[in-house]
């Protein structure tokens, strides 16, 4: 895993960094879900929007499915060009 946790610490502070450690299983599982859906820049998404990944995988999966359905079949391209859309899930 190639997440730059120092970025999370800089942007969100220690509390969120600890939450990432505390919810590490969820974080890993949610990353796997995005990998399976073909998202390539997952580690960058984690660094910029770590709070998204602290949900349990069941909730995360359902949120992501609805979100991608709403974006349409070219969701990968849309999200790489507009990462701010991830914020809609928060």
């Amino acid at each position: 895993m190639d997440i730059d946790f120092s970025k999370i610490n800089d942007i969100y502070g220690k509390d969120i960094l600890y939450s990432c450690g505390e919810n590490f299983d969820d974080l890993v599982e949610n990353i796997t879900i995005l990998k399976k859906l073909g998202i390539e820049n997952i580690y960058e998404v984690v660094e910029r929007y770590p709070l998204l990944f602290l949900d349990d995988s069941k909730d995360f999966s359902s949120k992501i499915n609805n979100f991608f359905l709403h974006l349409g079949t070219n969701y990968k391209e849309i999200l790489e060009n507009n990462m701010t859309l991830w914020e809609e899930l928060l």
Binding site: L79, N81, N82
Partner: peptide, 10 residues
């Protein structure tokens, strides 16, 4: 500007 929304790769 949408440039701030681009992924690092893009």
């Amino acid at each position: 500007n949408s440039l701030f929304g681009l992924s690092r790769k893009n």
